[in-house]
């Protein structure tokens, strides 16, 4: 262990701002990327489902006219 206490660790030998800024931005941008990527699958599937529902409706209304 390189640091004596938690405060010492957070202080990063005086470079706290830069080190934690770098780690913080990395963490936030990666988290955002991961969340957006993970949500895509569900979004795509619901889009396909709503498209299917629309096609179904179109078929029905055409059937009624005939």
């Amino acid at each position: 262990m390189q640091f004596e206490s938690i405060n010492d660790f957070l202080n990063m030998g005086g470079y706290a701002f830069y080190v934690w800024l770098a780690y913080g931005v990395t963490f936030t941008s990666l988290t955002m990327l991961i969340i957006l990527s993970a949500r895509r699958k569900r979004k795509v599937l619901t889009e396909i489902a709503s498209k299917m529902a629309r096609e179904e409706k179109l078929k029905e209304s055409r059937g009624n006219k005939l």
Partner: peptide, 23 residues
Amino acid sequence: LLFAPMDYQQGDSFRIIYIHVPA
């Protein structure tokens, strides 16, 4: 962040290397 020894020139700021170089 916790166990690697401190750089004698750059102090603790060098710990950014662990995300900078991989990225």
